[in-house]
Each structure stands twice: as structure tokens, then as C-alpha cells.
Design a protein around this nucleic acid. Structure first.
Lengths: 204, 204
DNA sequence: CTATGCTTCAAACGATCGTTTGATACGAGA
DNA sequence: TCTCGTATCAAACGATCGTTTGAAGCATAG
């Protein structure tokens, strides 16, 4: 049971992640997924129950990891971190996830798609797994920006999250130059984003 | 020919816009669209040729309008506009489009979806219709921020565009309060976004 | 060896997809 | 009034969708 189940499930998850990123949840069929994963068509329903459950699982796997790393980075901030440090704790784990070889880069696009889907069920799932992390960051941003009204802060965090989503998914107009790897490109995006966001949060 | 063709085409376009915004391009079927528009199924292929052409037309209609308004707002800036004014010329037309009764609100979500789709054909179409407008704005931002290196400026404009896309499509975590209309919510989002973006552009 | 419990497989299910067809309705111009 | 081009219609096309089925494979425990 162990090795073959593991391998099949994992290969489905990775193929699904790539194809969902490329064609969307409705646009990528289970036949494409199972064919790319070199497994039988019925394996998806056997291992995951349905296409929707597969989508959820693609999410859960990476999102748990992302949240874990963000909270870890948050913990590792010193006593008196700068705003840039706190932002980096929020932004860099997404960057790291995106540059790992096993398809994390595809996942950040899947994540951006999920926002675009505006699906209530998916939103609920995201806020359940995402909400407490965001609250943690809101707390440290609040202590770093004591003069900022709470509601104003929430708006600005929301803007940062949006810009991050967009930037990490590489949706922008800026094209990678020749000779710049995707990693380097994302690294640059993160640097610019942190600087920009820090100034935006400090505004007024 | 005149009135009935106009009515059918228009009703298809509007129903398509709403349903594409809600379910995505692949997720919304022509049967859903024609049913919502109260027209015959075959009308889409008759008037537009194919589903893909319909998608393109949904885009072109609004994007032409958005670009026109942005360029107009840009023209109407005085001799020495502030950075906030220039940003408003970029951001407010999207807001206005979003709050018109005839489905503009749906379109900004369609637009955000298009970014998420990452479809090369669609990207090319967008950059063709979008590129020169963005260049115009880049120029005025450059004169308003003369100390900023050109590449740095492009990065920051990209971030602004991302945050705008995200905010206008109402993807964020911030939920509308009871008694706040969608218009007011978007208005608030625009205000926060302009303030945030101005500070971000001025960073360092 | 046999039996058991996962896992994989080819095949088919009904539903729905985008598209096409040919008939029909209808208004404007000769 | 007849005609012709446009528009709409019900119906069907083949393809593909997500899902289900039942048999076959296969390792491990008795």
C-alpha cells in the first residue's frame, strides 16, 4: 500500500497543480491530469473522491506549508524588528515556495487563480487556513505602526496581499530579461515589493 | 436588421460578462450565457463566430472604454499635477467603470481573471490595447519622480497595477460592512489605494 | 497456498460541452 | 406582391466532461 499509493497520489497532485495553474480549475480536465501523471483516469476519484476534493487537496498541501513558514519567520523576528523585516516574513516564504523545484512556482499561480475564482466555498476555506496567520501579522504591523487607525491598517494589509499575489504569480507586464532566471526575477520582485509596501504602510 | 441585432448582441455580451466574471471563461457555458440573455443558443456562433471571439469582444468593448477614459483623465491633468492626481487618473476610471449599472462591476472581475489566466494570446491582446496607455502614464510618473531610475519605476508601476486589479475586483479579505454599498466600498478602496500607491512610488 | 484488502485498469455511464444545420419568420427594396 | 438577405429557432452533431463499474493485479497475513 505504502509506496505505490504515495507515488500515485503525489504524481496526481503535482500534475494537477501544474495544469490548474496553466488552464484553470475548470479548464484542466481529469484526463489531462491523469495523463500527465501517467496514472489511470479512475485514480483521481479513487484517491481523492472527486475533482473538487483534488482541488482542495492541491491547496491544502502548499498552503499549510506556506503558513507554517510564515509563522516561523514571524517567530524568528527579533525584539524590535523593522517594518521591512516584518514584511519580509510575510513575503519571502511565498517567494521561497515559488522557487522550489517541485512545482511551487505553479502553486502561486494556482493561489492567484483561487482569488480570481471568487468562489465562496474556496474563500471560506482560504480564510479558515489563512485568517489566523493574517491576524498575527496584523498584530505586529499594528505595533510597528501605532499611529495608524486599525481600519486603515486592514485596508493597507489587504493592498499588500493583493500586490503580493499579483507579483508572485508573475502576472505583470514586466517581462523577465534574457539571462535572468525565474528565481532572480522573483527575488527582484520581492525586493521591490517590500520596499514599496513598507513605504505604503507608512504613508501619511 | 438594426434594432433586433443590436439587442441580441448586446444582451449576449452583458450576460457573458456577468457569467464569465462569476464562473470563469471555461466555467461559464454558452448555454448558460444564452439562457441568461434570453436568446437562442445558436445566436452566439451566428453573431460572434465562436466562444473565443465572444470572450475577445467582451474584452474589447470595456477595455476600449477604460483606455479612453484614462487617457482623457490624463489629458485633463493641469500643468503641474501631484502624484496623487496622476494616480487618480489611472485608478478612478477603473472605479467609475466598476460602478456603472450595466455590468461594469462584473467586467473588472473579468479583467482580473484575464490576468490570472496567463493566456499568451490574451496577454498579447491586452498589451496591444493596454501598452500605449501604460506608457503614457509611465511618462508622467517619470517626470513626477525624476530621481527614480527607469527600471525601478517600471517595477513600481507594475505593483500598482497589480494592487489595483486585485482591489477593484474586490478579491480581498476585507468584507463590505452592512449598509455600505458596493460603490462606497470601491470608493474607499480607491482612496486607500491612491494614498498607499503614492507613498510606495515615492519610497526611499 | 489460499485468502484478504488495497490499488490499478479498461470500459462505459449519462450529462454537458461548442458548434452546425436546415427550416422558419420577418422586414425592406424592386 | 414577390423577393431576398438577415435573424431566430429547434434539433442534432461529435467530442469531451466527471464519475462509476466490475474485473484484474498484487502484496501481505494466516
Amino acid at each position: 500500500m505504502a509506496s505505490s499509493q504515495f507515488s500515485t497520489k503525489q504524481r496526481i497532485l503535482e500534475a494537477a497543480e501544474t495544469l490548474f495553474a496553466r488552464h484553470g480549475f475548470a479548464g484542466a480536465s481529469l484526463r489531462q491530469v491523469t495523463s500527465a501523471a501517467n496514472v489511470n483516469l479512475a485514480a483521481v476519484n479513487y484517491h481523492f473522491g472527486s475533482k473538487d476534493k483534488l482541488i482542495e487537496e492541491v491547496f491544502r498541501r502548499r498552503l499549510d506549508e506556506l503558513n507554517k513558514r510564515r509563522l516561523l519567520a514571524l517567530d524568528q523576528l527579533g525584539e524590535a524588528p523593522t517594518l521591512e523585516d516584518a514584511l519580509a516574513a510575510f513575503i519571502r516564504p511565498a517567494l521561497e515556495l515559488a522557487r522550489e523545484g517541485d512545482g511551487g512556482g505553479a502553486f502561486v499561480r494556482v493561489l492567484a487563480r483561487a482569488y480570481a475564482e471568487h468562489n465562496d466555498q474556496l474563500r471560506k476555506f482560504l480564510s479558515e487556513n489563512y485568517g489566523h496567520v493574517l491576524k498575527q501579522f496584523a498584530k505586529i504591523f499594528a505595533t510597528l505602526l501605532p499611529h495608524l487607525p486599525r481600519e486603515e491598517l486592514y485596508w493597507r494589509i489587504d493592498i499588500v496581499a493583493g500586490a503580493l499575489t499579483y507579483a508572485m504569480a508573475d502576472f505583470g507586464i514586466i517581462q523577465r530579461r534574457e539571462g535572468v532566471t525565474e528565481q532572480q526575477h522573483r527575488e527582484q520582485a520581492a525586493e521591490h515589493l517590500i520596499r514599496f509596501a513598507a513605504a505604503g504602510l507608512r504613508a501619511e
